[in-house]
């Protein structure tokens, strides 16, 4: 059963001859445990797709079902609740709170939501991400790559059923980028999370179960796992 479904979703900005169809009529669905890549050139509509799917902006038309709940039926407060409970975001820019150390970034989530990772799970996650020594550090004292790994830890900590990552490896060197993808792969299969990774780094798609390509607002399934490996 699909955890995330987009039915005839369109998103356009502006009106008249200024109108931009950032996302043309899109149908999409994702199953639990799938790691999906969305590739495509800059400005093709990848971020729009991700934020519409994650309930951060409302589509111009069409329905988005998260766990079979239509986001269109919900107000902003309820959508915010869905994001908190079901969806984890990893963004290109650092999304850490500057005045909280790494441990407190996680603790903040304990303040607003139940059923986050246990201590043991968190320790294992820190280990996997190689950020165990950074627990007491503040974002300003971390390198770009470290910050990104903490952001990933934060997104995973709340055990989301859908993980949306917008170019999560952009600020990492390629070795670290592979590690991060490997980790996302592991978490995705372990926790039956649905992970959608937007990237323009085509080398990363070998980790993914499905690869979609976005061109001018049109989303097309490009490869499934075996084929993509055959290409490489």
């Amino acid at each position: 059963m699909a955890i995330l479904e987009l039915n005839n979703v369109k998103k356009s900005f502006g009106s008249g001859h200024m109108k931009v169809d950032a996302l043309k009529e899109t149908n999409f669905s994702a199953e639990p445990g799938e790691l999906i890549a969305v590739i495509g050139p800059s400005g093709s509509g990848k971020s729009t797709f991700l934020t519409v799917a994650g309930g951060l902006q409302t589509p111009t038309s069409g329905a988005i079902l998260v766990n079979n709940k239509d986001l269109a039926d919900l107000n902003e407060k309820q959508r915010s609740k869905i994001r908190l409970k079901e969806i984890g975001f990893i963004l290109q820019a650092s999304n850490l709170v500057p005045f909280l150390n790494v441990d407190n970034q996680m603790k903040l989530l304990d303040n607003v939501k139940k059923d986050n990772m246990s201590k043991e799970e968190l320790n294992a996650l820190y280990d996997n991400l190689g950020i165990k020594e950074l627990r007491k550090k503040y974002p300003a004292d971390l390198s770009g790559g470290e910050r990104q790994r903490v952001a990933i830890a934060k997104a995973l900590y709340s055990k989301p059923s859908i993980l949306l990552a917008d170019e999560p490896t952009a600020s990492l060197d390629s070795e670290k980028a592979y590690e991060v993808m490997e980790l996302l792969k592991k978490e995705t299969t372990q926790n039956k999370t649905t992970t959608i990774v937007v990237t323009h780094d085509t080398r990363l798609i070998e980790y993914c179960d499905k690869v979609y390509e976005m061109t001018d607002g049109v989303l097309k399934l490009k490869e499934t796992s075996k084929k993509s490996q055959a290409i490489l």
Binding site: L56, K77, S80, K81, I82, R83, L84, K85, I87, F89, L91, A93, N95, L96, V97, P98, L108, L109, N111, V112, K113
Partner: peptide
């Protein structure tokens, strides 16, 4: 603002 925005994207409520 951007920090609050990030927290709101994460689903932390206006109330909190």
């Amino acid at each position: 603002i951007s920090m609050f925005g990030v927290m709101k994207a994460q689903g932390i409520s206006n109330g909190y």
